[in-house]
Nucleic acid binder design. Structure first.
Length: 385
RNA sequence: GCAGGGGUGGUCGAGUGGCUAAUGGCACCGGGCUGUAAACCCGGCAGACUAACGUCUUACGUAGGUUCGAAUCCUACCCCCUGCA
């Protein structure tokens, strides 16, 4: 039977990189893709119009946050998350699994599910695989993530095994509940855990394959481990994942991470880095990252990134954006967020194009040498009094 | 003119004899941020020397004085604020 959800269009000869097309009820998404994060139904500092200008075809929302406020029932009543936030293209909702990890002290993990103490008002909340599916069903996202435990790092082999096995049991329950609710428009992804242990990653994948999902995600990385371990783990597990299903590396990452992970076979990414760092004054450029706070940009009339053709770089200077930032003007966040996402999405476009042309390996080397060598020379300048 | 209060590092403002190169806020400088508890967090912030422990110099309106020791006490002067004339 033909797979309408995902099709691989070309496979790179020299690496695991590939290009493909995801088709949801709301948009077509060329992969490899970077998905901007819009936790609370908004990609912070940007309007939906801006996202469309950037040609973002899919963004994220978060089950946990939208469940607490405004509540999935309210969103369902108003016609679902797409309509509520006036976003006509695709949405992926994370299941709340990451909050099991990031909310640390505020939560208690049990077999049945996770008890959260709301970070907003301290109230007791409970999310199980079933509830997560019900919330995501009410939200109406195009891609639904199974409820998992994002294993903390470091974890011993035994801890990681127990955690992954819980995630597998929750994955099965997610699948059952999802199927009970689904109207056919949504797609469910499973999440591989297993920390940095290859045998556990493989075990996790096999258990998920038995259940069967529309796509598979690698979770539990970029949680504090050495970068080399993240790359190793991805390099090990990605090629074992089904070739005819999207592979999603959750929560990653830096521009280098994206290029390196595409080379290892990943199709989908999401990360708060371009938007959060933008609000904190850090912008990404083809020649490395820079912080607009830095005094050395006080008089620079250059754009943030001289190689960037985005609306911000065509119009505004570093000096002006620095001035905005230093005065706590919200426009600084808007402009930096817009540019950073433009940079990320453009990077993905270049990656796809190079794969299509069979030039990915050359592109990878070229991009990294420019991005990293300039970063090093920036450091030399920065340390020079 | 009389009475009272006050002058502290870029700034606001603590500090009333040694633990003070001087709390804290702001400003400034720098770093971090990876499925968003983040328009946030951390660090530096008199000068010089040192890889570092640290050492030295100059500092609390100005000039003197008391004391082993002063931003802190005394004297004079300069300036500011408030009230009364």
């Amino acid at each position: 039977m033909k797979n309408h959800f995902f099709q691989v269009q070309a496979q790179d000869r020299d690496s695991q990189a590939r290009i493909g097309l995801i088709t949801t009820a709301h948009s077509q998404i060329e992969t490899p893709v970077f998905m901007p994060v819009g936790t609370r139904g908004t990609v912070k500092a940007l309007t939906q119009e801006m996202l469309e200008t950037l040609d973002a075809r899919i963004i994220l929302g978060n089950t946990y946050h939208l469940f607490l406020r405004p509540g999935h029932e309210l969103i369902a009543e108003l016609g679902g998350l797409h309509k509520f936030m006036a976003w006509p293209l695709s949405l992926l909702t994370d299941s709340g699994g990451f909050q099991v990890f990031s909310l640390g002290e505020l939560r208690k993990i049990k077999e049945e599910g996770v008890e959260f103490r709301s970070h907003l008002d301290g109230s007791k909340q409970f999310i199980s695989p079933e509830i997560s599916m019900q919330i995501q069903h009410a939200l109406g996202s195009d891609i639904v993530m199974a409820f998992d435990e994002c294993t903390p790092y470091p974890a011993t082999h035994d801890e990681a095994r127990k955690s992954l096995e819980l995630t597998s049991r929750w994955a099965r329950r997610s699948r059952v509940e999802f199927d009970r609710l689904n109207h056919g428009q949504q797609n469910l992804f499973g999440i591989i855990q297993g920390s940095v242990y290859h045998d556990l990653r493989q075990q996790s994948l096999e258990q998920l394959l038995e259940i069967g999902f529309a796509g598979y995600a690698i979770g539990g990385l970029s949680v504090g481990e050495e970068k080399s371990l993240m790359y190793d783990t991805t390099e090990f597990i990605a090629p074992l994942m089904p070739t005819d299903k999207p592979r999603y590396l959750m929560g990653v990452g830096t521009p280098e991470d994206l290029v390196e992970s595409v080379a290892r076979g990943v199709d989908m990414f999401d990360c708060v880095m371009p938007t959060r760092n933008a609000r904190n004054g850090q912008v990404f450029t083809a020649r490395g990252k820079l912080n607009v706070r830095n005094a050395r940009y006080a008089k620079e009339q250059k754009p943030l990134d001289e190689d960037c053709a985005c609306a911000v770089c065509r119009r505004y200077s570093r000096a002006y954006i620095r001035h905005l930032y230093l005065n706590d003007e919200m426009l600084a966040s808007i402009l930096c967020s817009y540019h950073n996402l433009a940079f990320y999405l453009d990077l993905m476009r270049q990656i796809r194009q190079s794969i299509a042309l069979g030039e990915f390996t050359a592109f990878r080397a070229c991009f990294l040498s420019k991005y990293q060598s300039a970063m090093n020379s920036n450091k030399i300048i920065a340390n020079d009094p």
